[in-house]
Computed example of a mutant assay.
Amino acid sequence: MQRMSGLCVGAVIGTVFIFLSVDESLSSPLAIVLRVLAAVTLAGVVVMWLLGVKVAQSGGTLKAAPNTAESFFGRRYALVVATEAALLFIGLTVLRSWGLPEQVNIAWLAFVAGVHFIALVPVWGERGLLIPGMVLIMIGVAGFALAATTALKWVPVASGVLSGITILAGSTAYSWRTLTSMR
């Protein structure tokens, strides 16, 4: 169930990315639609988590669990998260000290989130994390590229909304895969 709990956390983060990144750059109806879709997707992941809890309580387990419970959120995971937190703090401090616009922060957040997923590949033995990791890194880089142009106002949409969609899609897909692999 730790995996499903982690996926719920991921879905919350993806939803937050969308809620905080939808701004005046998008029309109000589109912003509302994106927020509603994010909330509905988050609710779907939570429902899958609840179903997983029910299966686990009735003695169900994962058919193929590559990692033990200790290693899933163990010391190596904590090291990845601590490094991520340090990168976020240091990076945002540096961006601010350089006088860069606030919109660039979301590009840094997307980039670091991508690095986080890639760093978790050897920790969790989940090669599938390479896909969202690389996508998020590319989204972050694209946000920095946009910030260097006159399209600065689109950085939150490009880096924030697309990151949120990527994380929500991954959380949903992995939640479904995990739930359907329980017996």
Rank of each mutant, 00 (worst) to 15 (best):
I118V: 15
L100V: 09
E126P: 02
A86D: 03
V94C: 02
H116A: 08
A86E: 03
L88E: 04
G114W: 00
Q103R: 08
W124K: 14
E102A: 12
V104P: 06
E102K: 12
V112C: 03
V115R: 00
F117A: 14
F117P: 13
V115H: 01
A113Q: 09
I90D: 00
A107V: 02
E84R: 08
E84Q: 14
G114M: 05
G114H: 00
E126K: 12
R127C: 02
G125D: 11
H116L: 13
E126F: 10
S97C: 00
W124L: 15
Q103L: 12
V121C: 06
P122G: 07
G114T: 03
R127Q: 09
I118F: 07
L92Q: 10
R96T: 15
F111L: 15
W124T: 13
H116I: 10
N105F: 13
A119V: 05
R96K: 15
P122M: 09
G91T: 02
V104L: 14
T93V: 09
H116S: 09
P101M: 00
V115E: 01
W108G: 02
V94A: 02
W98K: 12
T83R: 09
P122S: 08
V115W: 03
A86C: 07
E126C: 05
G99C: 01
E102H: 14
P122D: 10
E84V: 15
A119R: 13
V94Y: 06
A113M: 14
L88V: 15
G125Q: 12
A113C: 13
W124N: 08
E84F: 11
A86N: 04
W124F: 11
H116C: 07
P101T: 02
R127T: 06
T93W: 11
E126N: 12
P101Y: 01
L88H: 04
E84H: 08
R127D: 10
A82N: 10
T93N: 10
W98N: 07
V104Q: 10
S97W: 09
V81S: 08
A113F: 13
E126R: 12
T83Q: 05
V121S: 06
A107W: 03
L95N: 03
R127A: 12
E126V: 08
V104F: 11
G99Q: 03
G91W: 05
L87E: 01
A113P: 05
L92Y: 07
L120Y: 03
E102T: 14
E102G: 04
S97H: 07
V112Y: 01
L120S: 10
A107R: 01
A113K: 04
L100G: 05
A85V: 15
H116E: 09
S97V: 02
L100R: 13
F111E: 00
W108V: 02
L92E: 09
A110Q: 00
T83Y: 05
F111P: 01
A119M: 14
V94G: 00
L88S: 06
V121K: 10
V104E: 12
F111V: 07
R127F: 03
G91V: 05
W124C: 05
L95C: 02
V94P: 01
V121I: 12
A82L: 15
L88R: 01
I106K: 01
T83H: 04
T93D: 07
A110Y: 04
E102P: 05
W124E: 09
I90Q: 03
W108H: 06
W98E: 12
G125Y: 14
A86P: 02
F117K: 11
P101A: 00
A119T: 06
W124M: 10
V112Q: 00
